[in-house]
């Protein structure tokens, strides 16, 4: 009975807390925060609809609205070949995403579910390699690719984005660590091979971590301009990725004619990514935190 009473009191307290005025204040604070967070995004969208091609520094909203920037993006000139860039990036992202996801899952499974003598040394090596600044190895990677005759090619970029992806296995490993061992032991007793366990038991329950890996590796090529700029150094515009192409629009001699197109390009890239994020949000979060949370 006492418990019930306490619960009643608690409920009353809760009701008091939830009075409309506090709720209003609470939601207004959130709204204000959301506005602060969205101002630059709104500016991006507004600017992308400006009829003036350069940067608008005097008013927040453009003086004259137009959709010309989007139209121009789809009618490529020598500078802006947006549809081509988009296609390039999409292809690179797809391959990167497949290879990276495979690599990450493979390494995570081997280090999490299997025991073999080189396991710990390999994991320690991975920790050490992750501590080096990636920027530093850029020039060496460039010359390695050149040796393979893969500079200025999309295969080269795919390799750069995905070849070392095995190093990012830790989150997936954390996730696999939570899969009950008994399940695998039972399967083994039934005569299931390690490969069988991997495909039949682990993969089916790994949806969140797969989504997480897929999204994060898919996004890489859309965001990176440093490596892409270095590797696509022949100045052939048709080969650019979206990031390199848009970045080059801000070149000193071009910015005044291309700034709003840059914004329009930014909006166009963000839309699919946003949709991907919103739809997959649940899995993404689960994957990211799943390893530690599930227990």
């Amino acid at each position: 009975m006492k418990e019930k009473e306490a619960r009643e009191i608690h409920k009353v307290k809760k009701l008091k807390e939830n009075r409309t005025s506090t709720i209003a204040v609470h939601n207004i604070v959130i709204a204000v925060l959301a506005v602060i967070w969205l101002i630059p995004i709104i500016w991006l969208v507004c600017t992308s609809f400006s009829s003036y091609p350069g940067m608008n520094t005097s008013t927040f909203f453009p003086a004259e609205w137009s959709t010309a920037n989007y139209a121009k993006l789809f009618h490529p000139d020598t500078v802006a070949q947006f549809p081509q860039w988009f296609k390039n990036t999409f292809i690179i992202a797809c391959f990167t995403c497949v290879i990276s996801t495979l690599f990450v899952l493979m390494v995570a499974y081997a280090t999490s579910m299997m025991r073999f003598p080189m396991r710990k040394p390999l994991m320690n090596m991975a920790v050490i390699l992750n501590l080096f600044p990636g920027m530093l190895s850029m020039i060496a990677i460039y010359f390695t690719l050149k040796f393979f005759n893969l500079t200025n090619s999309h295969i080269g970029l795919i390799l750069v984005y995905s070849a070392s992806s095995g190093l990012g296995y830790l989150i997936a490993k954390g996730f696999f660590d939570t899969v009950p061992r008994a399940l695998c032991e039972a399967a083994k007793l039934d005569g299931c091979s390690e490969a069988g366990i991997f495909f039949r038991i682990i993969l089916p329950v790994s949806k969140p971590i797969i989504v997480y890996t897929v999204i994060s590796s898919f996004l890489g090529p859309w965001m990176d301009f440093v490596f892409a700029k270095m590797i696509l150094n022949a100045g052939i515009s048709e080969k650019y990725t979206v990031a390199v192409g848009l970045y080059k629009m801000l070149d000193r001699s071009l910015i005044n004619n291309y700034f709003t197109q840059f914004c329009a390009g930014g909006v166009l890239v963000s839309i699919p990514i946003s949709i991907l994020f919103v739809i997959m949000q649940k899995f993404y979060v689960e994957g990211m935190t799943g390893g530690a949370v599930k227990g």
Binding site: I139, M230, N233, A234, I236, S237, K248, D251, R252, S253
Partner: peptide
């Protein structure tokens, strides 16, 4: 003959990164 884009103001940076390329 293939024509690539490289601004005159940044030509040096790109050329010197890898002269042979």
């Amino acid at each position: 003959i293939r024509i690539g884009v490289e601004s005159e103001s940044t030509a040096k940076d790109t050329v010197l990164t890898d002269i042979e390329a």
